[in-house]
């Protein structure tokens, strides 16, 4: 999971936020299945080389939001029915990603049709891959 959750030092968002969003993304995309075991605060902190307090804060928020569940004596798990990403969150993420992609495309002087076409191709390929991972 650590590789899927990355800390970007240039990102303006605080580290706990980056961890939180990363976990959410992973859960939402199915990379971390419902009910699966999540790494402990200690393990994740060690892998990311991040202050455990920061990881603990992210986990706290995730637990409060119902994405993660702590079971006494057994560890931390993904909730059985993790709440989906909020609409506002979804919109923000999509918009940020789209803006970035559009900026790239415009910079290299691609046409809108070309850019949309590449987007379609990428979407299809990723959906196919995901389907292969998960039955």
């Amino acid at each position: 999971m650590a590789r899927a959750v990355r800390i970007d030092p240039t990102d303006a968002a605080p580290i706990w936020r980056q961890i939180e969003e990363g976990v959410r993304r992973l859960v939402a995309s199915g990379g971390l299945a419902a009910g699966a075991a999540a790494p402990s605060v200690r393990e994740l902190a060690r892998e990311l080389r991040v202050n455990p307090a920061t990881v603990a804060k992210a986990y706290q928020r995730l637990t409060e939001a119902g994405v993660l569940v702590v079971q006494r004596g057994e560890g931390t798990f993904v909730a059985a029915a993790p709440p989906p990403i909020t609409e506002a969150e979804r919109r923000r993420l999509l918009r940020d990603g789209a803006t970035r992609y559009a900026a790239h495309a415009l910079t290299i002087g691609a046409t809108r049709e070309r850019a949309v076409g590449e987007l379609d191709t990428a979407w299809s390929r990723l959906v196919k891959e995901l389907k292969e991972v998960e039955p």
Binding site: V41, R42, A45, R46, R49, V50, N51, P52, A53
Partner: peptide
């Protein structure tokens, strides 16, 4: 360097 920070983080966690 990596090992040192891992060690430090573990100590902090513990």
């Amino acid at each position: 360097r990596k090992e040192l920070y891992e060690e430090l983080v573990e100590e902090l966690a513990d």
